[in-house]
Write a protein that binds this DNA or RNA. Structure first.
Lengths: 189, 189
DNA sequence: CGCGACGTTGATTTGCCTCAACGATTGTGG
DNA sequence: CCACAATCGTTGAGGCAAATCAACGTCGCG
């Protein structure tokens, strides 16, 4: 029964004590070292991770050998490879800690059981997914209406603390740029 | 109690008769003419639409006056401006029929009431949102790993029927291209 | 210290956009 | 039923933003 996650759930839904008891019936606390992997390409993803501390990234290596970062997992957020998780296919992605992390590890099987009976927990995840959808949509919107330079500055202004914490080349990858391009933007003044 | 939507829900969840009765307690069937709007910029979006027939698009006009299409609403799918809907802000987007359509109109207030008490209906929407997330993620993945030409051909091969049904410039907008660019790709052979 | 990871800088290339002019098709009113 | 406009698609010339390629600087760490 982790207070940090409990608190997070209560921000969006109103679980009963029973809901929470059921949810935490099966959970594993896990400390993760820097560069450690929670998922590698080819594995079947069977878990969702709630990030307590640190930062992880979900990425993929494309045909040209370049990394492509889809999401970061920051404290009070979830990270998983949803495609592999829900379609029961081998992952094409990696989940890796960018620094020392602490996470809660939930099996998908368990979470599905919980969601089937608890409207509160189900609603919690639904609401998170809706927020994710809005965020993704805004990202698309910005990437079309801003120039690369504007996009980078916008991202930095919205996430001033975050950009300090991860290497620049990961920001580049997340925004869909080359590391050189970011470097040139920064060199401009 | 619409059979088409009932059938769709049962593909993903197991609602009781009571769940369905509650859901359909408040719903409006609506015929929509070509180019008719279900939402315009500046309005507060308060509804989610289930598409029975036809095709709609969710789009936005950006600073340079260009249309930017985020989603299409095709039969057996939902369409709404989620950002406006969940954040209670004025919409920056339009929802417009690309042809003659039939939709079911549900108010968000009602759906939230239903989801609060029915795990089945809540799970239905959660599962759809998960699928949407996976689809969005794949779109991002492709847009980075494919060239424009490959992206277009990939889209056409995955949606052969759909590309026949909507004007080419909408496909262009959805994929993030200019109409001229698509035209040039097609001219290549 | 020396190596590897990360960042910088410059020269060059390229994929796609912009702008402009010109068909083809549809539909609408006279 | 035709004239005309509006809508949609095509084609070409030219430009630009960002990628690529390559070389070098810098920092932290075993």
């Amino acid at each position: 029964m982790n207070p940090q996650l409990t608190e997070h759930i209560k921000q969006f839904a109103s679980p009963t004590e029973e809901d929470l008891a059921l949810l935490f019936e099966e959970v594993e606390y896990k400390a993760v070292g820097p560069k450690e992997f929670l998922l590698k390409e080819g594995q079947f993803c069977k878990f969702q991770y709630f990030v307590l501390k640190g930062c992880l990234r979900l990425y993929q290596i494309n045909d040209r050998g370049n990394e492509q970062i889809f999401n970061f997992g920051i404290p009070n957020w979830w990270i998983t490879d949803l495609d592999s998780l829900i379609n029961h296919t081998p992952a094409k992605k990696y989940i890796q800690a960018t620094k020392k992390c602490e996470v809660l590890k939930f099996s998908r099987v368990h979470l599905e059981k919980v969601m089937a009976v608890s409207p509160a927990i189900c609603n919690y995840f639904r609401i998170l997914l809706e927020k994710v959808k809005v965020a993704d949509q805004r990202k698309m919107e910005y990437s079309l209406k801003f120039s690369g330079e504007e996009l980078y500055h916008h991202f930095c202004s919205k996430n001033p603390a975050f950009v300090q914490e991860v290497p620049q080349y990961m920001i580049a990858s997340y925004l869909g740029f080359t590391p050189e391009f970011i470097s040139k933007i920064r060199g401009k003044k």
